[in-house]
Amino acid sequence: MTTPAIPTVLETAPMDPALAGFLAQAAAQGNPPLESLPPAIARQVYRELADTLGLPAPAIGKVKDISFPGPDGPLRLRAYSPDAAGPWPVLLYAHGGGFVIGDLETHDKVCRTLCHHSGMLVVAVDYRMAPEHPFPAAPDDVEAALRWVLANAAALGGDAGRIAVAGDSAGAQLALVASRRVNAKAVRALGLVYPVAQHPSQPSASYPENEGKFLTMGVMQWFMASYLGQQADADKHPDFALLDSGSLASLPATWVATMGHDPLRDEGHALALRVASAGVEVTHRHYPEAIHACIHFTAVSPVGLRVMTELAQWLRARV
């Protein structure tokens, strides 16, 4: 399949006015920085944000919680089935949240939306979080979930020969790492929404340009310190430093979304170019008016729903 070349210079545009208004209103409230909160409180803030700023989720077939033996004890999955006859292609989804916040609830609407628009069985993984469980707990868990899905898709009504993996932000990094570790022919597609690809100690130009546009340098430093802890050279490990180490040639066809007003914009763009240079089929979609985490803000602006719909359409065509 032929895909358009990835531009070396990204399109620019003013921020979506509704998103700009949301950020101005949030700043005026004077809430404490997320990184100043205990992790449990920060997680609750994220849950409430995702719940209140997202449109009601579309109707799907059914939702089922599952437990399976993970690397260090039971792990939870949540399976979202389409309202149609199976067997369905399967999407394993890893939520974002900086490896510290985020869970099945923060991304429930996201997974329902992807299930509805793609017609796929979506399986969300509730991987272990930092700082309680630092690197490499999260990639180990997502890898285990992918192996479990490959072995058990049919029991859920899925097609074990048609698997995709996707995630947003930190979850996008975990989705890529799991796909690379497992390297199964049945994994046909990889979806990355504003991925984390390098440590904020090596900030690209999009960091200072977009400071405070939902993401800040302070919160990213907190996320990475919590995730990587005091482990020597963990920030250079191939399962973290996606731009600097580890082969990407084994990845399946990959879809990468970047947002114009996101500190992670340039590293996501660089990752798309690096995956393409490894010989992988890459589709890069840039949303110049959007901010990080916009897939949660569908009641504020339509751009987040467009991101999810276009990812779902691409997955449906690829898997």
Rank of each mutant, 00 (worst) to 15 (best):
I101W: 01
L251P: 00
W148A: 07
H237N: 14
V187H: 01
F214M: 10
I6S: 06
P238G: 05
R188F: 05
Q230Y: 10
A272H: 09
G268C: 11
A253T: 07
T106P: 01
A124C: 06
T8G: 14
D244V: 13
N183I: 08
A253G: 09
L23P: 03
K62L: 14
T258C: 11
E209R: 12
A186N: 05
A154Q: 13
G119Y: 01
E267G: 13
H95F: 09
A144V: 05
S226A: 08
I163P: 00
A253M: 07
S118N: 02
R181S: 12
A276R: 08
L305E: 11
A28D: 14
W255T: 04
D168C: 12
A28V: 10
A42S: 03
V282P: 01
T52P: 00
P131N: 07
Q198T: 15
D126A: 06
H292C: 12
D159W: 02
G96F: 01
R188V: 07
L251C: 05
A59Y: 03
V110F: 12
T106S: 08
V319S: 05
D51C: 13
P4K: 11
G157Q: 00
L104F: 09
G171Q: 01
Y194R: 12
A270V: 15
Y287S: 07
R274F: 04
Q230W: 10
G97Q: 00
A18C: 10
D244N: 15
L75Q: 00
A137M: 02
L248D: 02
A57I: 04
T2Y: 09
P195D: 08
H133S: 02
Q231L: 15
G304C: 07
S245D: 15
A94T: 04
A153S: 09
V300K: 04
A5S: 15
P17R: 02
L34I: 10
L92W: 04
A166F: 06
